[in-house]
Design a protein around this nucleic acid. Sequence first.
RNA 1: GAUUCCGUAGCUCAGCUGGUAGAGCAAUACACUUUUAAUGUAUGGGUCCAGGGUUCGAAUCCCUGCGGGAUCACCA
Length: 570
Amino acid sequence: MSLIELSDQEIQRRETLKKLRDLGIDPYPAALYPVTHKSSEIKNNYKEGEKVVIAGRLMRRKVQGKASFGELQDADGRIQVYFNRDEICPGEDKSLYNDVFKKLLDLGDFVGVEGEVFKTQVGETTVSVKNFTLLSKSLKPLPLPKTDAEGKVHDAFTDPELRYRQRYVDLTVNPHVKEIFVKRTKLFTAMRNFFNDAGYMEVETPVLQSIPGGAAARPFITHHNALDIPLYMRIANELYLKRLICGGFDGVYEFSKNFRNEGMDRTHNPEFTAMEIYVSYKDYNWMMDFTERLLEHCAIAVNGTTEATFGEHKIDFKAPYKRVTMRQSIIDFTGFDIKGKTEDELREACKSMGIAVDDTMGVGKLIDEIFGEKCEGNYIQPTFITDYPKEMSPLCKEHREDPSLTERFELMVCGKEIANAYSELNDPIDQRERFEDQVRLAQKGDDEATEFIDQDFLRALEYGMPPTSGLGIGMDRLIMFLTNNPAIQEVLFFPQMRPEVFGAKKGPELNENEKLIFDLLAKAQKMDLNELKEQTGLSNKQWDKGVKGLAKHGLTKVTKEEDQLTIELV
RNA sequence: GAUUCCGUAGCUCAGCUGGUAGAGCAAUACACUUUUAAUGUAUGGGUCCAGGGUUCGAAUCCCUGCGGGAUCACCA
């Protein structure tokens, strides 16, 4: 990057950097800095006169002559620091205060401070600085949002594009954003602890798979050079976890980064995190109990309460949750009973409800459309929807009382699904037939159906899998609900975005029009302005921009005598 | 994919029916020894997203492109 592209303030900071080096101060020292306290420890456990060593970013500086206040921001928050000229510079030489502190430090610099804790007249806990060390120089000015006495934020850094692309800045200046990610980590920890306490084991399964299975979604495809085969990035980890149940574990779970090559919007990112857990000798009824206890536990761990606010809704994750069969749900909201209906009858019903259908849709898909259109959005409080039609659930066990249904539930919150669970299908012959049905659906044109048959998974089932219940939870969605964020981008550190274009800006060299004008003028050195314009044959706008551009580069000068405008090279 | 809104100083934003680009904070200089977003005075800082068009003249009007937001569609 050339200097010409730097802003005024960036150039100043680079000059400051040089001055520091000239004074023998290393702006990027290597040595460990012996921090003894965090800002929160000092503020929460105030001890008058305590000697502390702290470090962080200098985020505020207010000079008042021979004394100054500043604010240091560390991982926990901010603490005020007090610089007194004669404390820092006891002798004749006051340059450490006058020059280094006042002129060569900038907001955003990482600084280490040794000092003593005291309270100012206004009562603010403050560290009185005895000595300070520059730990890392900041060359770009940070946005500086400020909160006033009424809690109103001024100059907030809010542009989503800038915030997502430069999350490091977002995290530095927006403490509430940091809080979201602290909560996100608390959620993962709480869930992990809950599973571990129950005796289940965290495992890892492949991200690169030769058959993308376990869900209906478009995968990302890549290529392995040594094997010379296509590999897919996983869309789900279900089939691998079930193999491990076949292998004899009681319970296994994995926080799984999944990748789906589909649309992006405020609730969908190409990579997202799911949690899947499989527990042997259990069924979906047990899993419902387990799920509501899990979510209650997680809500408390994250927010300290089972209650959460999401937009206009107040949600309560306190167990137990309401349970409604899909059939009953559709009766409740449409008056239509799906039990025993043929594909044609269902298609007619959809049409009468104003739901768009086409010929590729089978019984399951049609029911799903009705539910999605008429029912789903109505469940605000956590609600289990149970007993899904068989066609929609190729990996789920047939219902013990009704062979057209499966033992499946989804957990709905605020009209969105956040969990999905089965009594897992473990009959290998049934499973093979369901896969084959899926292949037929895919051939019929249903792009949600799975077109691959995972033969190795079927082989595992043939050796035998104990009765098992499995649960999947969309972790991003769950944390959105727990932190009141309607956009998935807000709960991902680095949401996917179109790549930023760097270095595309033009340098100081002349553009085509400027060159044309310059070359013509170079022959004469000095010309009448209008004459030159005619010779170039440029449009008014192009001419105007070109001439202004040249003047800006300091190459030409226009002089006016009487009504005569003359242009000459400088 | 469709519709719609937005892109101006490091940050937040003004800028009317076209007429020399503005404010606050940040920066620079000077003064000030306990301040609470906000000390005073002075100063500097902009290819107004890019390219084209209309015009004597475009940040402003029109077209195209790029980037982003919102709504809808699709997708868990």
